Simulated scan of single mutants.
Amino acid sequence: MSNDYPYQDTFEIDLQNKGLAKVTINEYTKILSDMFDYLSDFNKGYQENHKVSNLFNRDIEEYLQMLLDEREINHNTYNKVLSHINVYFNYLFTHQLNSNLPTIDIKGLKHEPKSELDTSWLDKLNDILADSNVHFYARMTVLLISKGFKSEEFLQPGFYRLFNQITFSDEEKIFVNLFNKFIEPIQLKQNSQDIFLKQRLAKDPHITSAGLHKYLTPSEQYLGFSLSPSELFKGYVVDFIKKNPDLSDSKLSSQLNLDLSSINYYKGLIKKD
C-alpha cells in the first residue's frame, strides 16, 4: 500500500513510539496528506520530482495561506496545522531524511479573541486529552475542572485520595492511564502519591498555583484559549447552569458546591453574554 505522504510509515511509527493516541496520529495523516495533495496539484517545484528536499518555507506558507483564504480556517486551526507540519519536518531533519527545515521561520498567528464565557473547550475535551502536544499537567487540569474541581482543591496535598474515586469515561480512562505512566516516576522521586508534583527534587514537592501556570502557558498558546483555572471553572459552571435550566438555585448551589451569591453572579454573566 502506497503512502499518503512521504515517509508516512516511519514517521507514524515514531509517533506511536512516543505514545501518541490513534486519534492524534490520524490527525497528522489528514493534515499531511492534504498538504502534499495540494503541493502535487498546485506547486510547480514539487510537481517536477515530488522530493521533500525541494520544499522551502515559501511552499509551506503558500499552502497555509490557501487554508486561510479559501477554506477560511481560524487562527487557532492555522497554528495547530503549522504545529503538526513542524513536527513532521523536525522528524525528517533529525532522522537525516531531509537537509532543511522549511517551517523554521514560519510564525504562528495571534489568537483571535474569544467570548468572555468560553465553554467550547468542554465539547473538545476528548480531543484535548488525546493531544500529546498539550502538557500532561494542562490536560489533567482541564479534565479535573470538567469534573467540577477548582485548582485550589486539586493542588492540595492528599487530593489523590479523592482523585481515585472519580468516575471517568472510556476516553478519559485512556488519558488517565497515560498520565499515570508520566507521573509514576515523579511520584517515586518525590515520595508522594499526589498528581501535581515538581519534576525536580524539592523539600515541598507540590506544585503551587504559580508553578502550574508555567506548565499551562505553552499549552494555552497551542490550543488558542485561556487555560487559566479560574476562567476554565467559570466556563464549567456557566455550561452546567445552561444545561440544567430546571434546577433551583439551591440545587445548583448544592451540586456546584457554590454559595447562592455565586450562583447569582454566574447567572448574571449568562444574561450579559
Rank of each mutant, 00 (worst) to 15 (best):
I106S: 06
D118I: 03
I166H: 06
I207W: 02
L122D: 04
G224L: 05
V238W: 06
F196G: 02
I183R: 02
I106K: 07
Q47R: 12
H111C: 09
K18T: 10
P113A: 12
D239C: 00
G148R: 05
N177Y: 11
N180W: 00
E220R: 12
K267M: 04
K214C: 00
K30G: 01
L125T: 09
I241M: 09
I25R: 11
Q193K: 13
L212F: 09
G268V: 07
K22A: 10
T208W: 08
F225E: 05
L252Q: 04
R139Y: 06
F154Y: 15
S219D: 01
G45A: 12
M1G: 14
D249L: 06
T10S: 14
M140Y: 03
E220Q: 15
M1W: 04
L122V: 09
K80Y: 10
I145N: 07
Y28Q: 02
I128N: 03
S2M: 11
S2K: 12
N79E: 08
N54E: 15
T217M: 05
W121Q: 05
I104H: 05
K107W: 01
T77Q: 11
L32K: 03
N49R: 12
F89A: 09
T29S: 11
G224D: 10
L125Q: 10
A130N: 14
L144G: 08
D131I: 15
D131Y: 11
H213E: 04
V81P: 01
K243W: 02
I31T: 08
L109S: 01
H206N: 04
Q221T: 12
D9H: 12
T167C: 07
N264Q: 13
M66Y: 15
D105V: 14
F163M: 11
G108Y: 03
V237C: 06
P205S: 04
V237S: 04
F196C: 06
K173W: 07
D273L: 08
L144T: 09
K147I: 12
Q221Y: 07
F89H: 06
T24Y: 03
Y28K: 08
D14A: 15
Y266W: 03
L216C: 00
F225M: 03
S226D: 09
S254C: 02
S53N: 11
E112H: 10
L117S: 14
Q193H: 08
S254P: 00
V81I: 15
V176N: 10
D118R: 08
Y215Q: 00
L122A: 07
P113N: 14
F159A: 12
F196V: 03
